[in-house]
């Protein structure tokens, strides 16, 4: 198992910033300082994405109740996607999958969402670079440059991504979504950046099942790292060597 050994790509944020500075300087000398983020002082408990972290989830399949879908409803409510009315075309950021062992008949149930791979195939195939991995391991779609080609959906081994087939209105302010682009679980990045846990994790805890642990895989003291170190766990499609940030126990 090679979880915390992560090498993160450099992303060209610095380049954007510099380009912007140039453009701004040329445009107007009246400016104080374009690009200066005036609101970057103070504020509440929150931090920028940091490469010293890698966010992950651990699902204990034994604790996941078969007919419970609290995580799914919570995600849907949090991120503003409707629970499937038209399951073929509606987006599903997270879904409950029911399993029956073909040989033994053992049944299990678990949530599947974006697995936040260390080597995400969706990021490799995306022609514009809209699919990307944040330095803290969260895999996102930059919907501002997504052209809706859906190659990432072809390449994802978990079917974690959805395409928005229709016009949407009244989206959640923190989860913009719109027709013609691809989307998936963001690990509730807006909450994580604010120092909170993803909605599914909170909802699962609230049911008393407590089947999902969220935490920093690089921090050996975190609950998730300890659980991973002490008990066996698996990655879905481990054969592909993608080293996902979402792991399952007792599968």
């Amino acid at each position: 198992m090679k979880l915390p050994a992560v090498k993160f790509d450099e992303r060209p944020a610095e380049m954007h910033r510099r380009d912007f500075m140039k453009a701004g300087a040329a445009l107007a000398t009246v400016t104080l300082a374009p690009g200066v983020t005036l609101m970057a002082f103070g504020g509440d408990a929150s931090a920028e994405a940091s490469a010293s972290k890698r966010w992950g989830l651990l699902v204990d399949v034994n604790k996941c109740a078969k007919d419970c879908d609290a995580c799914v409803t919570a995600c849907s409510k949090e991120n503003g996607w409707r629970l499937p009315e038209n399951p073929e075309t509606d987006a599903q950021w997270i879904r409950k999958v029911n399993l029956t062992d073909k040989d033994t008949g053992r049944e299990a149930s678990l949530p599947v969402m974006c697995q936040h791979c260390e080597e995400p195939p969706c990021v490799d195939v995306c022609p514009t670079g809209a699919s990307f991995k944040r330095v803290d391991g969260i895999v996102l779609v930059d919907k501002h440059i997504c052209i809706g080609c859906r190659y990432c959906m072809m390449a994802c081994p978990y079917k974690a991504r959805s395409f928005v087939h229709e016009d949407l209105t009244d989206q959640k302010p923190w989860a913009p979504r719109g027709k013609g682009t691809v989307e998936s679980c963001t690990m509730c990045v807006h909450r994580v950046d604010a120092g909170q846990k993803p909605a599914c994790v909170e909802a699962c805890a609230a049911t008393g099942n407590g089947a999902i642990i969220f935490g920093d895989l690089r921090d050996p003291e975190s609950e998730i790292s300890k659980a991973l170190a002490n008990y066996p766990s698996t990655a879905l499609r481990a054969d592909m060597g993608l080293n996902p940030g979402v792991r399952y126990q007792n599968l």
Binding site: R95, K96, V97, N98, T100, K159
Partner: peptide, 14 residues
């Protein structure tokens, strides 16, 4: 084939 060896079902046509 995300779960080899299992029969699977879900709302997402797994």
């Amino acid at each position: 084939d995300i779960f080899p060896g299992y029969t699977v079902s879900s709302s997402f046509f797994d």
